[in-house]
C-alpha cells in the first residue's frame, strides 16, 4: 500500500505535466478554428481554468491540504466572481458617450 502510494506520488507530477502540455496544444489548435468571438473566448478560458485547477490541485498540493485551504480558495474565487459580475452589470447598462 505504502509502496504503491510512493510510486503513484512520483509519477503523478509527470501525468499532470503531460496533461498541461496537451491542453496547451489543444487550446492553440482550438483558437485556430473559426468560431465566433464569444465561443472562442469561452473555450480558451475554460481550458485555462482546467489547467489552473490542475496546477492548484496537484502542483500546489491543495488535494493534500486541510479543508480550510479549500475554503480560502472558494472565498477568493467567489469574491473575484462577484467583482467581475458587478463590474459587467454596471458596464453593460451604461450609455457610453
Amino acid at each position: 500500500m505504502n509502496t504503491h502510494e510512493q510510486i503513484q506520488g512520483s509519477r503523478l507530477p509527470f501525468f499532470v505535466y503531460f496533461a498541461l502540455i496537451f491542453l496547451t496544444i489543444a487550446t492553440v489548435l482550438l483558437a485556430g478554428l473559426d468560431t465566433g468571438n464569444t465561443v472562442s473566448i469561452i473555450i480558451a478560458m475554460s481550458v485555462a481554468s482546467i489547467k489552473a485547477a490542475l496546477v492548484l490541485t496537484y502542483f500546489m498540493h491543495l488535494n493534500h491540504e486541510p479543508m480550510i485551504f479549500k475554503l480560502f480558495l472558494g472565498v477568493a474565487f467567489l469574491t473575484l466572481l462577484a467583482i467581475f459580475i458587478l463590474t459587467f452589470s454596471d458596464y453593460s447598462f451604461r450609455v457610453l458617450s
Binding site: T27, A52, V55
Partner: peptide, 16 residues
C-alpha cells in the same frame, strides 16, 4: 506555481 497559473490566463488572452 502561482506565477505559472497567472501566465496560464495571460497566454490565451494575449496570444490566442
Amino acid at each position: 506555481h502561482l506565477v505559472d497559473v497567472i501566465w496560464i490566463f495571460l497566454f490565451p488572452l494575449y496570444y490566442l
